[in-house]
Amino acid sequence: MNINTTLIASMDISFPSELGYEIIVRDAVESFAHRHGFAPERLEDLRTSLCEACINAIEHGNQCVAHMRVDVRCQYDRKQFQIEIQDQGIRPFSPPERPYSIAEKLAGVGTLRGMGLQIIAHLTDESGFLENDERGNCFRMVFYCDLDRTSRY
């Protein structure tokens, strides 16, 4: 199959590090994804994982310092939707030494906090922090497209 991976569209959103703004960003990105034929059955996955990633950026990366910005870049190239969430990295991401699974956490082992990245991993096709980003933490998540669908553009 010949897949055209040329970038079709991109959109950038920047917002203050304050809880609540992730909802507005979620609605903006959902609108962008919807316009490009994002599979409706996966929209909830997109909404949930984007909110989790933005909350992480606000709470952890930028430590809820309102004047620090979170930048979100959405890119669509027929093959996939890619979303990058960039914070200013007051607190660089460091993975826990002993990450408990969601099942373990629900069973009472460890705190109930800290499930965001695992939830995102379940809901996306690819996810993770980009390495060596000097601007702060940059979290990338990807949703593969259903190639039978055609974009509205």
């Binding site: 569209a9 991109s10 959109m11 950038d12 959103i13 920047s14 917002f15 203050p16 304050e18 609540g20 703004y21 909802i23 507005i24 960003v25 609605d27 903006a28 959902e30 609108s31 962008f32 316009r35 309102a66 004047h67 509205r152 553009y153």
Partner: peptide, 30 residues
């Protein structure tokens, strides 16, 4: 007071006005 600003950068292609509408609507609703 801190200005709470959302910045949206869109391509100049008809259809993207809808994204701006939805974003403004979401903020106004909240």
């Amino acid at each position: 007071p801190l200005e709470k600003v959302i910045e949206l950068r869109l391509p100049s292609k008809l259809g993207y006005e809808r994204v701006a509408m939805d974003t403004a609507s979401s903020l106004a609703k909240r």
